[in-house]
Amino acid sequence: LVRYRTISKIPQITLNFVDLKGDPFLASPTSDREIIAPKIKERTHNVTEKVTQVLSLGADVLPEYKLQAPRIHRWTILHYSPFKAVWDWLILLLVIYTAVFTPYSAAFLLKETEEGPPATECGYACQPLAVVDLIVDIMFIVDILINFRTTYVNANEEVVSHPGRIAVHYFKGWFLIDMVAAIPFDLLIFGSGSEELIGLLKTARLLRLVRVARKLDRYSEYGAAVLFLLMCTFALIAHWLACIWYAIGNMEQPHMDSRIGWLHNLGDQIGKPYNSSGLGGPSIKDKYVTALYFTFSSLTSVGFGNVSPNTNSEKIFSICVMLIGSLMYASIFGNVSAIIQRLYSGTARYHTQMLRVREFIRFHQIPNPLRQRLEEYFQHAWSYTNGIDMNAVLKGFPECLQADICLHLNRSLLQHCKPFRGATKGCLRALAMKFKTTHAPPGDTLVHAGDLLTALYFISRGSIEILRGDVVVAILGKNDIFGEPLNLYARPGKSNGDVRALTYCDLHKIHR
């Protein structure tokens, strides 16, 4: 019993810090008490220290592992850092350059016999395009090294910054494609005289377009951006097909006994025919423009016929181009109408809503002055909100995010209106959640004399007048207030005048 009563005193000691020596009952000389009392004092002292730490809000209350900052290894790049964003855009520009100039170089340097010394005699450094290609190869190699040090988000939505895990993730992902696209074939085969082989191998750079397509997928929600990307894709495919079309004609031209190829026909049409040795002929500019003209006309199913396939190889390629053109029509131009419709969806919704308003007016036989006010209010409210119901949009977000959005939407009023000066951010967040926005066209009466005042109004834009009878008592403008002081009276009061809008007004109100 003594032991039980001794232990039962522990909660009292913990909360009230009572010393055991003052209790005459606990001072009985028993061996059990002498053993338990020192333990009680020690526990009391420890609990006292913990309570003191909690009340003082000291940093040592938290466990040590929670006080440590997340460790980022040296030379690790955050995937959302500004440097990584700028670097990704730079790589994107280099990939676009590669997609345009690599097929052009591979096709127009394929057994090209233009006048001038061969590239091997001039030297590697004197070729501007080769120098640019070398810079692109170096940048792609540097990009691989950067990807080995860039964080990523795993399946659990955690940012991984450990170098080993980053390397394994990159090896399992895009490393092989990036490595093949970054191989400097110019340096590996330079001086061997195989410019045709170098041009063909350099087309491996186009593998990076797969990554670019995935990154550009984030802009699919913007109709104008999608339309622009589709047109660029169409032009890029036409450019690639033009390079292939020229390569076919250029390879067949020296081996044909009869002059029936499209390059021969082009030379005869523009007065620059090929001679018996295969030299001469149109310039590279004429060849490229004509090839691009043929691919565009074939892809769009126009086909004027002034550039036509004559050999079997050219006919087979033309059939493939027609098939590609039909697929592009289905996948690209078939979506253009939907994209344009999405661009004008706001206008369509406006006309639909206006039609419903006019049908309501016609069905209920609203008189002319009231009908005009109804239409003007709808037009003004639509121009202010673009038909978007803010309350319906915010309803799907958590309250903390709703408060931040409301604070942002009402920031101008909260910053410049005098009653809100000096208020804490928590108070402003709470008030912003209570605001209701209303609009009024010129001549609209917001409050009639004798109406119950259940709200306090803040003028965000425009001006109003307060009338008693036919006498203008006051004219209020931006950041002015009218209405009933909230919670100042037990019952809502009545208006002693009319409140009429002089201009288009936007008002925020808080109800009782």
Rank of each mutant, 00 (worst) to 15 (best):
R371Y: 01
V86M: 12
Q415Y: 11
Q365V: 03
T311E: 01
I135V: 05
E115Y: 03
L292I: 05
V357K: 03
N250Q: 13
W262T: 01
V336M: 10
V95P: 01
V136S: 04
M139H: 03
M328H: 01
Q379K: 11
Y274L: 03
G426A: 07
P273E: 01
L188D: 09
E196K: 14
M179E: 01
G426R: 03
P398R: 02
A213Q: 06
L110M: 15
R214Y: 05
I332P: 03
K66G: 07
I405F: 01
F378H: 10
G193D: 04
M322R: 03
G116F: 14
G193V: 03
F140Y: 01
R74G: 12
D133F: 01
T295R: 01
H239K: 01
P118E: 03
N368C: 10
T203S: 05
S331V: 12
H364G: 03
G426V: 02
A238S: 01
M433V: 07
Y274N: 01
G280N: 01
C400F: 03
F140I: 01
F171H: 01
Y384S: 10
P282K: 02
R74T: 07
W245T: 01
L343W: 05
D286I: 01
I324Y: 03
V289I: 15
R165L: 07
V132L: 09
M390S: 05
L230M: 12
V132K: 01
A247H: 01
L145W: 03
F360V: 01
I135W: 03
I144R: 01
G303M: 01
P369H: 03
L209V: 09
Y104E: 01
P254V: 14
K285R: 13
D257G: 14
L67P: 05
H408C: 03
M179D: 01
P118T: 15
L188C: 10
P419V: 13
R371A: 12
V226S: 15
V289T: 01
Q353T: 10
Y384L: 10
S326F: 04
P309L: 01
F228A: 09
A125Y: 13
T311D: 01
A119G: 14
P282G: 01
I138K: 01
V136P: 01
R71D: 07
V180P: 08
H448G: 09
N335D: 03
E196I: 11
W87E: 01
H408T: 01
A181V: 01
P442C: 03
G173R: 11
A242P: 01
V210S: 08
P117Y: 06
P367S: 04
K202G: 01
I260E: 03
Y246N: 01
P70N: 11
F234Y: 05
Y377L: 01
Y293L: 05
F101A: 11
Q253H: 03
F397A: 03
G123L: 05
C122D: 01
W245I: 01
S192C: 11
